[in-house]
Each structure stands twice: as C-alpha cells, then as structure tokens.
Amino acid sequence: MKILSLITVVFVGAALIYGTLDMPKWGDPHSPASTHVSPYYLRHSLHDAATPNVVTTVLADYRGYDTLGETAVVFTAGMACILLLRAGRKRRGKGHV
C-alpha cells in the first residue's frame, strides 16, 4: 500500500512539475496572469467601487458571488457539524453516553 502510494505521489508530482516547465517566471510582471484580467481591477477599482484596497473590491464587488458561495460553504459546514454531532442528542443522551 505504501509503495503504491509512493509511486502515485511521484507520478503526480512529476506530472505537475512537467507542467511548470512552460510557466512564466516567478514574479514576471508580464505574465498572462498579471496582464489579462487583473490590470482592469487595479485601474477601475477606485472608480467603480471607491475603495483603494483592490482585494476588497474584487472580493465584494467583481467576484462578490464567489464570496456568497464562500459564506454558503461556511453555513454548510456549520449545518453539517450540527447535523452530525448535535441534532437529536438530547433524546438519546440519557440512554448511553
């Protein structure tokens, strides 16, 4: 089992490293990630949302729906924990602890 896991890990790691070979250099200001969509946020954040912190603008405005999803994830986790650990404890509690 351990050998199999090790082989899988090495294989997956090698695949991931193979993918990085064509990646832009670290910190390259002209990489696609830094030139395609993100300059728009930096340029328009102040005008669109009057917020100097661009991360806040993207979080709450441009990609606000993701943040709604994020909140829903937390709610889901909370409800999941209640469902798993708390709900119905009172009735059963006396029988066996």
């Binding site: 064509d22 696609p32 990630a33 030139t35 395609h36 969509v37 993100s38």
Partner: peptide, 9 residues
C-alpha cells in the same frame, strides 16, 4: 494552471 497561462477564469 489554466489561470497562470491565460490570466482568466
């Protein structure tokens, strides 16, 4: 990986 090479989601 897609984001790194295209800059878009």
């Amino acid at each position: 990986y897609i984001y790194i090479s295209t800059g878009s989601l």
